[in-house]
Design a protein around this nucleic acid. Sequence first.
RNA 1: GAGGGCGUAGCUCAGUUAGGUAGAGCAACGGACUUUUAAUCCGUAGGUCCAGGGUUCGAUCCCCUGCGCCCUCACCA
Length: 478
Amino acid sequence: MALIEPEDARLAKLEELRRLGVDPYGGPFPGTNPIRELVQQFDSLEGSSVRAAGRIANQRDMGRAAFMDIKDWTGVIQAFFQLNRLGEEPFQIQKQLDAGDLVGVEGNLVKTRTGEKTIFVERFRVLAKALLRPPEKWHGLRDREKRYRRRAVDLFTNEEVMDCFLTRSQIIRAIRDYLQERGFIEVETPMMQSVPGGAAARPFRTHHNALDIDLYLRIAPELHLKRLLVGGMQRVFEVNRNFRNEGVSTRHNPEFTMLEIYEAYGDYTSMMQLAEGLISHLAQDVRGSSALPFGEAMIDYCPPWPRRAFWDLLDERLGLQRGDEKRIRQLAEQSEMEGAASEPADLLAFRLFEKHVEDSLMGPVFVVDYPKSISPLAKAKAEDPDLAERFDLYIAGMEIAPAYSELNDPQEQERRFLDQVGAEDERQKLDTDFLRAMAYGMPPAGGMGVGIDRLVMALTDQDSIRDVILFPLLRPTD
RNA sequence: GAGGGCGUAGCUCAGUUAGGUAGAGCAACGGACUUUUAAUCCGUAGGUCCAGGGUUCGAUCCCCUGCGCCCUCACCA
């Protein structure tokens, strides 16, 4: 049984093309102009011969003439096929074309009498006969499940989807440029690790056959990047995937893209400046404005961004004061939180923050002065040792970027790790090799992790992470 | 993992008010048309109504189970 079921009518046209001596999956078609250029630079190109290649988005058949809308990833332009311009046989070939086929056309760029910029086709080549129909021409593919499962169709059908992913690419490129201009180098560290560290999350497990060892897909690159600080790399960053074996939601995909940045001799305040500079630059240069819409809200990326203390926000929103353990547990209980009686109060406070405060932080806002106990990789504040030198950057109600003054005291780091290890065997195995590296001397440093998918969501006004990941995880169907 | 919603033609959706084996638009097919643009006009065809079971004379509709997706919550970034 065939794996796909082509349309009979299209198979017949495929055969007819072959009978006419045409390869329905034709060779290269070089020398084309991006269609947007043909449209935008029409005035200077008018009357000259141009070439374009793309997908037939729509056909208007007039008998001895036909109009087609040819679409590439930059835009769409009309092509006009006429019997007396092409001749009998080429026109017969044109008759075998359907919406969805890929075609290359060449001809004069002129306007029709109704003023439409049009390629009057002199020559054309069939580049690919589509055996399946594209979705309907004006509603397109709307069904979310079909869109995610058939992203190829989604991309060529829904312009705003293509635009979003083109923007994502521009954002990532702009990040690389921005950091490299400031002396940061891009590195790559292991995705497969024997000890998954750098975050509190459940890892995916896999196995290496030749060495016969279990490995974990990384939950964060943090501990390896800090080894590079020990090694003398002073400014490093990595943009790559992390993998966390946790739930899936509009803000969580099991594999997601993280930017981690480390700056030797910096601290969390230098990371604040970097975050402000970088993200406002992205808004301005990639999105074209320092104020961008997100849903109903307008987000102003113009620095400086406010700093708000963790406990102040909890006090303001929930009337919760630092150290009031009884009330924290009481509220956790009311919020039906697991471990309301047993988990450390700071951790519960943090969860209450995520549950009741986070969504309202349109930001950008730096939340600072987190409890040290929930920040095992961050330095303590000298003037208030129960707090950490840490911020979480919130934008559009999402945690976008946590950053620390990185702890560089190996003995203190060891104590903090040991405090974290409890019954959670798989979540926090100890990376002793990392501690050993730190014992050789790690420079004080600022470090930040930027959730790229969420940042793209904020900058492109998307409310689901699946709309900024080309192939989000779905349960397979067949 | 829990709760709610959804699943009908290739696509976007109606619908069966209260159970009697389904409809539109677009797409497709045949025909007319050499400047149309959601082309138009005439005609035709197209469905395991998500899957399995139950109730019933009869189920796409009611009930149960399963599968998938969406939303909210939980875990997490």
